[in-house]
Structure formats: C-alpha cells, structure tokens
Design a protein around this nucleic acid. Sequence first.
RNA 1: GGGGCCGUAGCUCAACUGGUUAGAGUACCAGACUGUCGAUCUGGAUGUUGCGGGUUCGAAUCCCGUCGGCCUCGCCA
Length: 590
Amino acid sequence: MPKLKRTHTCGELTVEDVKKTVVMTGWVNSSRDHGGVTFIDLRDRYGITQIVFNPEAGEELHRNARILRPEFVIAVKGVVSLRSDETINPNMETGKLEIIADELELLNRSETPPFEISESETITSLEIRLKHRYLDLRRFQMQRNLIFRHKSYQIIRKFLDNINFLEIETPFLTKSTPEGARDYLVPSRVNQSKCYALPQSPQLFKQLLMVSGYDRYFQIVRCFRDEDLRSQRQPEFTQLDLELSFIDEEDIYEIIESLMAKLFSELLEIDIPTPFPRLSYKDAMDSYGCDKPDLRFGLKIKNLTDLAGKSDFKVFTGAVESGGKVKGINAKGCSKFSRKDIDDLTASLADCGAKGLAWFKVEDGRVLTSSIAKFFSKELQDEIADRLEAEPGDLLLFVADKDKVVDSSLAQLRLNLAKILNLTKKDDFQFTWIVEFPLFEFNSDMDRFDSLHHPFTSPRSEDLSILDEKPLEVKARAYDLVVNGVELGGGSIRIHDPEIQKKAFKLLNIDDESARSKFGFLLDGLKYGAPPHGGIALGLDRMVALMLGLDDIREVIPFPKTQKATCLMTGAPSAVDQVQLKELGLKIDD
RNA sequence: GGGGCCGUAGCUCAACUGGUUAGAGUACCAGACUGUCGAUCUGGAUGUUGCGGGUUCGAAUCCCGUCGGCCUCGCCA
C-alpha cells in the first residue's frame, strides 16, 4: 500500500501554493540528470510539474531519483517553490514553479515504451499507436481529445435536460431489419438458430417511445453497421439521437442550431450564427454536385449543357446527345496553371469516372484560349464566359458525361481546387441544412423505388396526392445537417399514420407479409394513437473531430478499429472455442 | 469486390540505375557532469529489410504469391 497520498495534481499549482508541502503522483515524463541536481518532469492528465532532487536532501533520495526512467509511476512529497527568474520555463504552464523533493516513492516501474509518450511532435504510425493504445491514450493530444469529448457530452446533456428531454436507453440486442446497412449479428444460445442484431440506430424504438408519450427523448448511443470503413466511418460509432412529438421541422432546426451554437461558444469560443442557411437537395446538386457541400468557399458549378450542344466539340455534343450534360467551374485566377497542373486535376477525377477535363484560359479582353477553342464560335465563347462570370486570369474547367459522373467529378474538382488554392480555414464552420430531399430514388438494378432516407420518413402533405402517380417527384420531410463538407447528421418527420406507412411500403416493394415480419411491432404501435413525431441523429465522433480540426474520427475514439474492422490491441475479432460454438448450435466452414 | 500507396534497428526514416560490411536521428545501456527543461559530453549495444517463393554471379531494390497498415471507388435505408 502506497505511503504517500496525492494532495495536488500536476497541473494545478499556482504561485499561491508556494511554500506548501504537497504530494504529487504521476508518470515520469522526462528526466535530466546532472550528476548532482536531478530534474524530473512529472506528468498526469492535468499537466506537468518539475520536481527537483537535490543531493543535499539526502543521499538515498538522490540515488533513487537517478534511476527513474520515463513512464515510471511515482509519488513525490516536497515543498512548492518559486523558480529563480533565469530558470523560469515560459513554455510550461507550471513553469514558474517547481517542487523541491524530500520524499520519493516508486509506485511502479515501466518497460521502455515502444514509442515516446512525451514527444509531442514525432508522429508514430497509427498501426503502432493502435497496438499500444493504452500508451497512445497517455499522450497529451489524445487526453485533450477525450476530455474535449467528455465536455461536449456534459453540455449536450445539460442543454437537453433543461428543455425537458429524457435520456432513455434502448436495447443493443434487438431484431435484424435487413434494409439499409448490413447488420452485425449475435447468435442466440437460448433460441438456437436465431440471431439478434446490433442496432444500426435506435430508429424504431425511439418512434415507439413517442407512441408511449415520452415526447422528448434523447440518447447518446452506440450504433453498429457492418460496412467498409473510412477515416470518417467506424463499424461502431456514437450518435446523439433525438425524437420529439407534436413538432415540425422548424422545432428540430431550432433545437439543433441552439445546441450547436452552445457547444461552439462554450468549447471553442466561436460564435456560430443562427439560424443556419437552408439549401434544397436540388440546388445543392446543381451548384455543388453533391448533397454535403463545403460552403466555406464558392467555386460554384454552372450548367452549360444548352451552350455545349451548340459547339462543334464532339465530346460535348456527344454527351448532350446521349442524354448526359456538361457543367463547369470557374477556377478564379488559375489561368497560370500549367498543362501538368491540369493533367493532375484530370487524373484526380478518374475515380469519379470522368474521362477528361476540358478547359479554357481567360486572357486579356476575355479571350478564351485552349486547344479546343476552335470548336466554339466567338459568340458561344462569350456566352460561356458570361455564364461562368469569367474574368481575365481565370481558368474554366468542364466535364461532359453522364449526369452522375459530371456531378461527382465536379464535386471532387471543387474540393481539390479549394485545397490547392488554400480556400478553407480550420476555424471557419459553415453550417447548412440540406432540405427537400426526394422521398424515393429509383433502383434500376432491382427495378423498384428505394427510400433516400428510410421507409418511415413522411412525404410532404402537399405531395400525398401524387404519391402513386409520380413517386419520384414526392419530396420528403427530411433534413441533413452539413458542416464544411461533412454530413454531421440527418433526420426526418416520420409517418405516424399506418395507412400512409402501408402505402410507402408498397412503393418500396415491401409486401404486407414482409412488412409485418420486419416492422410489425412498429406498425402495431402506430395503430394506438401515435402522435405526430420526428427526430434527428448527429454523428458525435464526427462532430468532436470536426471541432478539434481532425480529419480522422479515430483520433476521438479511445479504442477504434482498423480499416479491416479489427482491433490491433485485443486482436478482435478472433476464433472462438468449439464449446462456445456448440452451445450456440453453430458450425463454421473453413 | 475493384484501384492506389506503404512495410528496413524499439520508434521515425535513408540506402542513386540490382553491387562491397544496410546507415542516420531518436530511444535504449554504461560512464561523466549541481539549474536543466528536446539537457550536454564520451562510449556501447541494436536488423528474419513483414513472410514465402522466383529471376540473377549478386535482391531491401525486379517478378509472383501472401500477411498487415493507410487512402479511395463500390457499400454506408
């Protein structure tokens, strides 16, 4: 049992504490042994404080101090003292103070760690960091990230509690609903040959909580999706999940906007103007080529299909004739781009399917120059220049192809240009609501309609009459929250009328029987006085990463998975004992 | 499932077109040093070049396979 009991943390001493006898505990961050006097920087999650071991304080104490190595765990008793002017360290928060040690207790040794914890600049590979995550989490940056995350949770809970939200838990072992993402399955021992599924989201439960009268629900909840990973996507991730009754879209917008404003002001001292601008799905696709545009910069996409058809340029006319389109971006001030610069841009769009990038440079007098200029009459060139608001010094870039290719490649081009031109600032947060989503999209592979959002999303009431004849024109009461090109979350007003729900299933080609077997409990619930309701879910990993200026959500998740969904620390997933499999009635084919 | 990048000392990286004994910084170990704070100085130890096969007089380097990490398309209602 340790003798010394901590009285202060390594970050809390001030000049007020001078002359006090204190006990501190922590890890040896670094040591500087001068043969005589020996210094130890002691670290805990609150900060770093310098400990001084003078030989005069005792031979044994000094000898013991000299054998300390990084990451040893110690307790030190000593007197707080003010450093002399020339030994103050201005780079350290506690740099005006130090502890003159008179007692040292070695609480534990440490093997030499695989990487240095104290080193703030050296970036160890993610692979090594994940393998020894318990050490990686000891680093200042990771502690800062997790502490920040904790603080955001406290603000969220307090904010929602204040406006009557109830935090209610929903099951993790639940029923598989094979629509949407792939489920993680958990075989049942008690019910052989049957499986639970881990929830992709608590969607149906929170709707049923509305039926039960808990008219403002929230949960900070883990969700599971067995899909391929990205830097913004983990197989288990955390959502802030909300559902409300007797509300409409405006109530959701207002609550989320105030919550975001509060988080940003309290955690970052950044003023987020509200209300957030709203952009229809159609306008987003037209002007930015995607439904999660980064609005920190312009570079809007313009449609030139009508003009392109009048040219003699085969790539353009061909695209128009085969039902595609031609759109372009004015890269302001980029006429100096070399042939290689443009080739690099083109190459970066290959993934999106773009076979080429047509371009014009805008010279003095708004003369367009390009190897393809001869295919465009002077009048046509002027019209193109007008459409793109071209000025001398600009570079006009075009993609001609099928709709989907044009949109995705110009969306990508926008982002690439912004990066090259350094148009984005880390502390600039441009929120927007994407609204007026179509309710359905046509799935040509399966020859049916699919929900763009999910099957419980309500159509706009004014569109109910065309639900049968023109389903693709029906707009959903759905909304996404987008910040700086990141989809932070989304939600919708739900269908609370079982008849309309039935109709929606019908259009989605979900027959009565399968609707009943998959969602019967929801349909039943809706029969017993379901209030009008709706909600939203925000990706908290993404939100915290975004606020900290990080691109990878693994930086804000204590124990994340690799791209192959494994855990390098625990070795999960792993083979299991035959006995366990037998109990579950499972056999694994090799 | 497709495309791309990467794997060399504990860690981060180097090694020209295939060529002699695979190097550097840092960490580590030992010694020196009484005010440092990325301490300094002196010395030392450290390699299955991810793994397996092939080409070659000769492979870290080229080829094939495989394992692992990352990025990306598909996928993520």
